[in-house]
């Protein structure tokens, strides 16, 4: 069987290579942490959950089936960990229901002006605003948007991770984007 990069690393980890696990962590750290922090919206909890995720991955790595893609398997573990935490702690972090967002001003905007100046600044502002709006949409939409764009997963992979039918995943992502578009338009943030 032909192994991909992740699977080669996993084989080395199972053989006791410490460096390979560090490499695997560094590869996924950014995407996992960003997914978690956007789901729980708390720095400390996000750090704790990300650490728990890697420890969990390490402890169940021997159960990983090489016939499947490692990233999908790992993201499912991450998703379950986050959902469990949210359920246990009764953290309901949805807030986009009408005018909430429109009152929020863009606090941070990257001071980035490139050669063609204004256009890029505007684009960057829209992007920052867009991602801030993503943080505010209801969780059932947000989790799918994060999986689709932050973790760069395909619809069928998201369906596998979330346990939803592919059709539902697609519809919810469309609905989420409609919600985002309307919010951004309402605030006049489109370039």
């Amino acid at each position: 069987m032909l192994l991909d990069d992740d699977q080669v690393l996993i084989e080395k980890i199972l053989d006791g290579s410490k460096l390979s696990f560090e490499e695997l962590m560094k590869k996924y750290n950014k995407k996992i942490y960003n997914f978690v922090i956007r789901m729980v919206r708390n720095d400390e909890v996000a750090i704790e959950l990300t650490q728990d995720f890697f420890i969990k991955i390490f402890s169940v790595l021997h159960k990983y089936n090489f016939q499947y893609k490692f990233s999908t398997w790992a993201y499912r573990i991450c998703y379950n960990l986050v959902i469990d935490h949210i359920r246990k702690n009764q953290v309901y972090v949805d807030s986009l229901n009408g005018d909430n967002i429109s009152q929020k001003r863009l606090v941070e905007s990257k001071n980035f002006i490139s050669e063609d100046g204004f256009d890029n600044l505007e684009k960057d502002e829209v992007k920052t605003y867009l991602w801030k709006t993503v943080d505010q949409i209801p969780m059932k939409y947000r989790e799918l948007i994060l999986m689709r764009y932050l973790q760069e997963l395909k619809y069928d992979e998201i369906a596998e991770i979330s346990g939803l039918p592919v059709g539902t995943v697609k519809n919810r992502i469309f609905k989420a984007k409609e919600l985002l578009r309307k919010e951004i338009e309402k605030d006049g943030m489109f370039a």
Binding site: M25, Y33, I47, F54, V126, V134, L150, E185
Partner: peptide, 28 residues
């Protein structure tokens, strides 16, 4: 607007994870 949004979503704004994560996990 959808095109613009699609471009923005396809290029996410990432937060740099704290270095302590890798260190703590390795230690544990």
């Amino acid at each position: 607007q959808y095109v613009q949004m699609e471009n923005g979503l396809a290029d996410p704004v990432y937060t740099e994870p704290p270095a302590q994560i890798v260190k703590n996990v390795m230690k544990r």
